[in-house]
């Protein structure tokens, strides 16, 4: 009787200990997020001023801003999205609509999932071999292509998932009134899955706007204002990389401010993306 009671006690104790450890684990996860965001806000906010958005990256030891880097990031992100999104949406469309049960879809889905988590520096090497070496120089367009390769798998994945959620009855209704397949896809399936597809695009923007590794040896960097797509172009992440590892205090401060800008952009985009799908789930 006593042993049964003590066994019961020890099981309860063990349970309490393990559950406490789980709570601590969750606390650790949240604490990291708070620590990183706190450090970013603390160090980054002190450097935020109008000059950051209106002046060029300075030479060592001078004050300046991040205008050319911000511009470069925006330009390359836009080109990357414009190139990558149609390919991704079309590929996702094939997988969910025309070839839902085909062998090709299974293979593409598997390969796409691998591309989704493949190291981005490998993509940088690929574009270096593909574009930079043949052209003989670094260029913004090579950077944009590298980013578009990172966009494609994200968009393919979300497009396929979202189109698969569209009820077949909707498609059948479209076909029943005589609409050809592509009209059904365009006017019924796309429309029903729109918010999901947009979410995928937003997540893709969030992913590439902080990517550094694929830009290091494709777009390189540029100390000056440049809008020439065929020349090296500055970008926010690469500038942060260069400035943070420099010994100059002004550069390090700009790196922190740039890091804050990127983080807020990325977090903002992913929160918007999440609220889009969240609303859909509730409905």
């Amino acid at each position: 009787m006593a042993t049964a009671a003590s066994l019961h006690q020890s099981r309860k104790r063990k349970n309490a200990v393990m559950m406490a450890l789980c709570v601590i684990a969750a606390g650790i996860g949240l604490a990291w997020l708070a620590l990183i965001l706190g450090a970013l806000l603390y160090k980054g906010l002190s450097g935020v001023s109008l000059a950051v958005f209106t002046q060029m990256t300075p030479p060592p030891g001078d004050a300046g801003g991040l205008l050319n880097a911000i511009y470069g990031s925006i330009v390359m992100t836009i080109i990357g999205i414009v190139v990558g999104t149609p390919i991704g949406v079309l590929a996702g469309t094939y997988m969910a609509e025309y070839g839902r049960f085909s062998k090709l879809t299974t293979v593409v889905r598997f390969i796409n999932d691998i591309l989704l988590s493949a190291p981005s520096i490998i993509v940088g090497l690929f574009v270096y071999e593909l574009m930079v070496r043949p052209m003989g120089h670094f260029s913004a367009i090579a950077g944009a292509v590298a980013l578009s390769i990172l966009v494609i798998p994200v968009v393919v994945r979300t497009t396929e998932d979202m189109l698969n959620l569209v009820p077949n009855a909707l498609r059948e209704a479209g076909t029943a009134i005589g609409a050809p397949r592509w009209v059904v896809i365009r006017s019924v399936a796309y429309r029903a899955a729109l918010s999901g597809i947009v979410t995928g695009i937003l997540l893709a923007i969030a992913r590439i706007s902080g990517e550094t590794a694929p830009l290091l040896f494709t777009a390189l960097n540029n100390q000056f204002w440049s809008s020439n797509l065929n020349a090296p172009m500055a970008s926010l992440p690469v500038t942060i990389f260069q400035f943070a590892l420099s010994p100059y205090e002004e550069w390090q401060q700009l790196a922190w401010t740039g890091a804050l800008i990127i983080t807020l952009t990325v977090l903002g985009l992913s929160i918007i993306a999440r609220s889009l799908t969240g609303r859909r789930e509730d409905r």
């Binding site: 609509e97 025309y98 090709l104 090497l125 270096y128």
Partner: peptide, 29 residues
């Protein structure tokens, strides 16, 4: 419809080509 289907199929195949291209270019380099 045929054109649209071909375009979607080509995009899907492009995903495979991308991974193949990465492998080939790395081996070549």
């Amino acid at each position: 419809d045929m054109v649209f289907r071909a375009a979607t199929r080509a995009s899907a195949i492009l995903v495979l080509v991308l991974l193949g291209g990465v492998a080939i270019s790395l081996i070549a380099g």
